[in-house]
Write a protein that binds this DNA or RNA. Structure first.
Lengths: 186, 186
DNA sequence: GTTCTTTTATAACACTTGTTATTTTACTAA
DNA sequence: TTAGTAAAATAACAAGTGTTATAAAAGAAC
């Protein structure tokens, strides 16, 4: 009955999300997305009402991407919060633009940190319960301290002010946990 | 011999810096600065070769402003690093746009964190020596841990994910210091 | 093949940016 | 008062943005 659709919503969203990863959210403009997708700007405005809608979709995809990234990250920590912390810091190093969008930007659509962290898997709640089971008397307070520390390391990674290896970072997190938990240093 | 100068370099720099504090670096455009200063864009390009030069000047002023802010901040901490840490976190809360420019942005002119922290007063070196005098065996390592924590709290302040009072923050920093230093909790 | 419909491309509008050419203004020296 | 000079204002250019009006293209039904 009519011309066949060649540029789909998925094509556009995929392109825009890839651009966010590579060049940052700010560079996701109508013309640049169109150029990357090999079409004019028109197909964008057929499937999305306006750019705001596309940006919303990209943001939501970034949230999902982060949650998948964390749940797929190899579990290597011996103490609570270390798994999630290592994934978080690695994410800041490997996906700078996404980390910036999700956790440091002033973007109006930004969710709170804990909203992003608590995905379907419920990472934070899971980790806190893990700590409780491990015999920690005040796991919520301990998580807060640990997360301030982890977030600090991640943000410094982003700006190049933190440059420890994974091995060194694990050690650092484990020692910090012990310190916050009140265990003597070994 | 000629017309008297009415819009000086100082006027323009003051205006641009004030705008950075209030609206952020991104909003310091030629036309907006001119509007705020009550003139056309022409006087800007008389005293500065281009906007890049003005932005450079604004950035340098932000660095000075931060250093003054820290050295004027009331000293309230009982343990090392707490003074600087409290000032840093307060700066993130009170001067969001400046903090963003100096410590989290991807701006090309951004100095490293430690370069900014080590002003004429040599804050970091001073604090580390203070810790050494206080009998700390490894003040450099201790500072690193403390500063990751402090930076995390400051960055979370910026995004609204941290909202403790000054009193609570001091306590938090002092306990963290004790924890990192290996002192038992009281 | 013709007609109809939807998708895509082209072109344009209105706005913002840095920057520059031109004109106007204000002051000083003679 | 006049002439010269530097500062400031006006206006324009080129490039970028989101968005939309219009034209072209491609496939389906007849």
């Amino acid at each position: 009955m009519a011309r066949k659709e060649t540029i789909t919503l998925q094509t556009i969203l995929d392109t825009a999300f890839a651009m966010t990863r590579e060049e940052g959210f700010v560079n996701v403009t109508a013309r640049k997305v169109a150029a990357k997708a090999g079409c004019s700007t028109q197909p964008i405005f057929r499937v999305y009402k306006n750019m705001e809608e596309l940006w919303d979709a990209v943001y939501e995809r970034a949230v999902s991407f982060f949650r998948d990234y964390c749940s797929l990250y190899p579990r290597m920590g011996k103490v609570p919060f270390t798994n999630l912390g290592m994934a978080y810091i690695a994410f800041a190093r490997e996906e700078k633009h996404l980390f910036e969008l999700l956790f440091v930007s002033e973007d109006s659509r930004k969710k709170s940190m804990y909203e992003v962290l608590n995905g379907d898997a419920g990472n934070v709640v899971y980790e806190i319960n893990l700590a409780r089971v491990a015999g920690c008397p005040n796991p919520g307070d301990l998580f807060m301290k640990m997360w301030i520390f982890i977030h600090g390391a991640a943000c410094m990674t982003l700006t190049g002010d933190y440059d420890l290896s994974d091995k060194e970072t694990i050690e650092l997190l484990e020692r910090s946990y012990d310190a916050f938990a009140g265990n003597r240093e070994g």
